[in-house]
Amino acid sequence: MSLLLMVLALLGALAVLGGGGMVLDRLLREVEGRRGPPQAADGEPAGPGSVGPGEGGYSVLEESTGDGTRASPGVPAPTLARVRELLALGRGVEAVRVMRDETGMDQDSARDAVEDVWRGRLG
Rank of each mutant, 00 (worst) to 15 (best):
W118A: 12
V93G: 04
T65R: 14
S59A: 04
G12L: 07
Y58H: 08
A15Q: 11
P53T: 11
L86N: 09
R100A: 05
A113K: 00
V16Q: 05
G47R: 07
M22K: 03
P48C: 04
L87N: 01
A110F: 10
V51I: 11
V98A: 11
A41T: 05
G120K: 03
P73Q: 04
L28E: 15
R29M: 12
M105Q: 01
E55R: 11
V75L: 09
Y58W: 15
R35I: 09
R97N: 07
P37A: 10
L87G: 05
G49M: 11
T65Q: 15
R34H: 08
G49I: 11
R35A: 13
T69A: 13
A71V: 05
D42F: 04
T103N: 10
R84L: 03
L87A: 01
S59E: 01
G33M: 07
D42L: 12
M99Q: 09
A9W: 06
V23K: 00
G92S: 11
L17E: 12
V75F: 01
V93W: 08
R29K: 14
V83N: 03
G43E: 02
S50L: 08
L86F: 12
P48R: 08
V51Q: 15
A95M: 02
P45G: 10
G49R: 04
R70G: 07
D106T: 04
G123T: 00
V93P: 02
L27G: 03
G18P: 04
A13S: 15
G33Q: 06
L24T: 13
S64A: 14
R29F: 08
L27F: 05
D108Y: 11
V98H: 02
T79P: 00
A41K: 01
R119H: 11
E94L: 09
L27P: 02
V16G: 10
E55F: 03
E102P: 00
P48E: 14
A15G: 14
S64Y: 13
T69I: 14
L11F: 15
T79A: 01
L17S: 12
L5W: 14
R29N: 13
E62I: 07
S72F: 06
V16E: 13
G57I: 06
